[in-house]
Design a protein around this nucleic acid. Sequence first.
DNA 1: CGTGACATTATGTCTAGACATAATAATCGA
DNA 2: TCGATTATTATGTCTAGACATAATGTCACG
Lengths: 219, 219
Amino acid sequence: MSFDARIRAAIEGDIRSGALRPGDKLPSEHELAAQHGCARATVSKAMAALHHAGLIERRRKAGSFVADQHVHSAVLEVPDLAQLIEARGHVYRWQRLSREQDGAELHVTGLHYEGDTALALESRTIAVATVPDAMDESFDAIAPGTWLLAHIPWTSARHRIRAVGASAEEAQALGIVENTACLILERSTWRADAPVTTVRQVFRGDLFDMVAHFEPSPR
Amino acid sequence: MSFDARIRAAIEGDIRSGALRPGDKLPSEHELAAQHGCARATVSKAMAALHHAGLIERRRKAGSFVADQHVHSAVLEVPDLAQLIEARGHVYRWQRLSREQDGAELHVTGLHYEGDTALALESRTIAVATVPDAMDESFDAIAPGTWLLAHIPWTSARHRIRAVGASAEEAQALGIVENTACLILERSTWRADAPVTTVRQVFRGDLFDMVAHFEPSPR
DNA sequence: CGTGACATTATGTCTAGACATAATAATCGA
DNA sequence: TCGATTATTATGTCTAGACATAATGTCACG
């Protein structure tokens, strides 16, 4: 274990055990460096990591303080459906239902199958201006999400998760009773401020859930 | 903008624009330092940040490479309900329904009101061994989540999000029709491996959703 | 032809010191 | 006493160099 990681672990332990409480002042970097017998840059690295993890607040001149319990945030796993389904031991299959071009937008709908049951109904809009290659793709055999993942560099994304009862059409496509509770995942992605795609996935509530983890000290 | 942030932004821009594609090799730290006219430690700091953000992979001797498009993950906001409701311009109120002690576990149920409508039904279990102070608290006026936030140091947490139709009891408590789609948030928290609390919140699907963001370069 | 020893290389970590910056504390003048 | 200026202090960033570490490529030897 590296030196800075050890310093970091020591302080983190004090915080998580309650020995240091929110608002408490930590020793200055100089003092910590002297205590641990290392250079200030090493302490600084450890403190920067703690700050990044949200465990401490830092104010020039004032010093470093244990942060208040913050708004809960967690890392949400948004799995690739094909991976998820195969991890569950089933066969994944994509079935395209429709593909329409409407000016600068390409609309694709389809079903994600887990074995023989339809798990999710997807309706997607792709911005042709940002992804011109999509015009040449039928999305007949490959799901647009998978295709886009391989064709478009990094994006930022906004997700919205809701619960709604299935509409008549959705229920029919998924083979469930109308108004059954479904988990809706809506995702919009951008590539450097240019819109890439917007997708709405309707999941059968009885077959799917999402998981999120919160760790103050990831990695 | 600091030097290392500028170097980082330059490389990140190349990646996001597609000039550098997944798998491409980046110049070595020495080369980048020479190019930018700075010390290697500064480049190293920028590269460490890019690595932390998941944009690049680093291998000793081999070099640094643009990372493959990874599994989607996003930062999920798990809001404090009181804050959320007040931000929406309504009055928040907690109404405790029950409180029972069962050996080492304390069970509390109650309703989170947004104005006059019940937004969520909460059933919570608190581990008395980890949080002995909870025994002296009635949770009559203060929601257990709020109380715990103020009394327990950092925790790790696991969240599960599902959609289910409301049961008869849930529907009655929330004042909705049975089987209406609801968003279920289940959260378990630990304090250094000791269980703290497990909570199940049933939200009216028509009044609540969750939001998650994904940014390759947070902060 | 395969294998183990060795040199090479790029990252990982660290040092001792420097200057910049922001915020607080102290001081001085009106 | 109030307010503006100045000094102090802790963090923020950076440098130039050092050694550690891990992985790769090379090369001689069997």
